[in-house]
Amino acid sequence: MMDKRQFLSKLEKAILTLPRNERDDILYDYEEYFSNGLADGKTEEEISSSLGSPEQLGKELSAVYYVDAVQESGTTRNFFRAFWAVISLSFFNLLIVAGPLIALASLLFAGWVVAVSFSLTLVGVLINTLIYPEIFEPFNIFISIGLTGAGLLIGICMYAVTGWMKHWFVKYFQFNVRMVKGGMKYA
C-alpha cells in the first residue's frame, strides 16, 4: 500500500530522464487525480492502488514522450531514446522490437560496409601506385573506377533505405505504444 507521497516519488523516479516541464506536467496530472479522489471520499492508499504501478506508468509515459519527440525531430539520439523507451515497456516488447531492429540494422551495416569499401578502391589503387610505381597496371585503374562508381551508387541507395527504415521503425514504435501492454493492470 502506498500513500500519495510514495506513489508520486516512485513515479517521479520512473520519469527522471524526461525534461523538467514534461515531468512537472505529468506529476501535476496525478496530483490532481489524488485531490479529486480525496474530495470524493477515498483514501490515498485506495487511489494509488487503483492507479496501478507507478513504475509501469512511468515507462509508458516515457515511451509516449520519446516516440513523439522522434517524430518532431528525427535525430539519431531521439531515435535510440524512443527505441529504449519502447523496449522497456515489457519483455515482450524487447523481443518484438529489438529483434527485428537488430536484424535490419546488421543488414544496413553490411550494405554500408560494401558501399564504403567499393568507393575507396580507386583511392587504394592510386595510393598503391604512388608507393610502388613499378607494379602499376592500367587494368587495376579501370576496375577500381568501376567499383568506386558502383560503391557510390550503393551508398546513395543505402542512404535512402536507411531513412526509409528509420521512418518505418518510428511507425512501429507508435504502434507498440498504442497497442502493447504498458500501464494496463489486467493482462
Binding site: I26, D29, Y30, Y33, S50, L51, G52, P54, L57, E60, L61, A63, V64, G182, G183, M184, K185, Y186
Partner: peptide, 9 residues
C-alpha cells in the same frame, strides 16, 4: 474494469 492510471498516458 481498468487500471485507472493508464488514462493519463
Amino acid at each position: 474494469e481498468l487500471s485507472e492510471g493508464a488514462v493519463y498516458p
